[in-house]
Write a protein that binds this DNA or RNA. Structure first.
Lengths: 210, 210
DNA sequence: TAAATTAATGACCACTGAGTCATTAATTTA
DNA sequence: TAAATTAATGACTCAGTGGTCATTAATTTA
């Protein structure tokens, strides 16, 4: 087996997606600052120079990853909410299931940890994430809660704050998975964890049923 | 006003504590990897070389910060649990109040974000934190939950997983404060946030009162 | 007060990684 | 098939940082 230099294939169409996939994997594994662009390029089978052909900077690469990967799942969720006709708690469960399939079971689940870790040091990236993901996700969840409060299915609580309390355990689950999981400091059984969270919610949110 | 070189005061006794305070502030502000030891030294009013007189490495400095700052609060909590005589939910509230005063209202509240952010890249530090803080904190919280389940005050749920669900919103509150707070993506009113969390818990944990 | 001790300094080294650009070669066009 | 185009390369620059160590000077000891 001789070491031959690969012929350089030219595949302009596929490079950006391949680079974004490689970047996501390394970003969630090592963090934004600690990821070397040369490794991203290597992982995508190109050289560092090629990466700069398609993305202006490390930050631009990261923004693309968010835009192409996370935003579509939110759009799906918005469609689900618009079409939903059952009670509000069922909508919450549907939204969660969609989020789980599109984010929770993919490398995108690592993004919350990533953002939390890097927000202070890369405020421009944080701002982008806030505008495009957080704000939109909160609006979606808030509309489900308001629906339940309006119908009397849920108790009347401050909506913005309740969003935070409802979403926090889900975010922490993702964050644990990508941080301290190596120390067995993460819920052993995410399914059970979510079941308990939902059962606490079901009992705790309950209002005066109309 | 002439620029005069300060006389170098020799204050062997105070340096370590001053360096640790400076380090905590910068670590929670910028993260472990992104904090320059020269800045820590500057912030403590000494030169970088002096820092190495008292701490072997960046990691050693960080471990000292944890050991001196966080562990004592856990020890206090263990004392509170041992002396407590009321019902289990009251114990939970007491432990929370103690945690809040000793951690939540200090720079130490930034440590959870710090650990989450850096765990993967500094496994030795993560291991140290797990052994000395997480394991111990979980044991403390678990004992309070078990007390409630044994008396029938709480429903019987898987203890380990319930610990996670109970603690997650508290951790997320701290994490938000030190990450995306700049984007208004943090609960505006922590007091209300905790009130809602506790009210969900009170209703959700309730068991068949004996 | 002279000598010994040691707290404190900061220039320096070795290494790293983002971003550049002159060069190479695959592909297209004439 | 020769010329033009452009995808791809990788050596290079440059700024930054953890850690070292020979030197300086504050304090203590004799």
């Amino acid at each position: 087996m001789s070491i031959t230099t690969q012929p350089r294939k030219r595949r302009k169409e596929d490079r950006p997606a391949e680079l974004m996939t490689a970047a996501l994997g390394l970003f969630v594994e090592k963090g934004f600052a600690a990821t070397r662009l040369e490794d991203v390029a290597l992982c995508a089978g190109v050289s560092k120079g090629t990466l700069y052909l398609y993305f202006d900077s490390k930050e631009a690469l990261f923004k693309s990853v968010i835009q192409e990967g996370v935003v579509p799942v939110l759009v799906e969720g918005e469609g689900i909410a618009a079409r939903h006709e059952g009670n509000a708690f069922e909508l919450l469960e549907k939204l969660l299931a969609n989020w789980w399939a599109g984010i929770g079971e993919t490398n995108f689940a690592g993004i919350p940890k990533l953002m939390v870790a890097e927000a202070r040091n890369f405020p421009e990236v944080a701002q982008f994430y806030y505008e495009n993901v957080i704000r939109r996700g909160r609006a979606l969840l808030g509309s489900a809660l308001e629906r339940g409060m309006a119908s009397g299915e849920f108790a009347r609580l401050d909506v913005e704050t309740t969003i935070d309390v409802v979403i926090a355990p889900v975010l922490m689950l993702f964050i644990w998975r990508y941080s301290l999981a190596g120390c067995q400091s993460t819920p052993a059984d995410p399914r059970q964890y979510m079941a308990i969270h939902l059962s606490l919610l079901r009992a705790g949110l309950k209002g005066s049923q109309v």
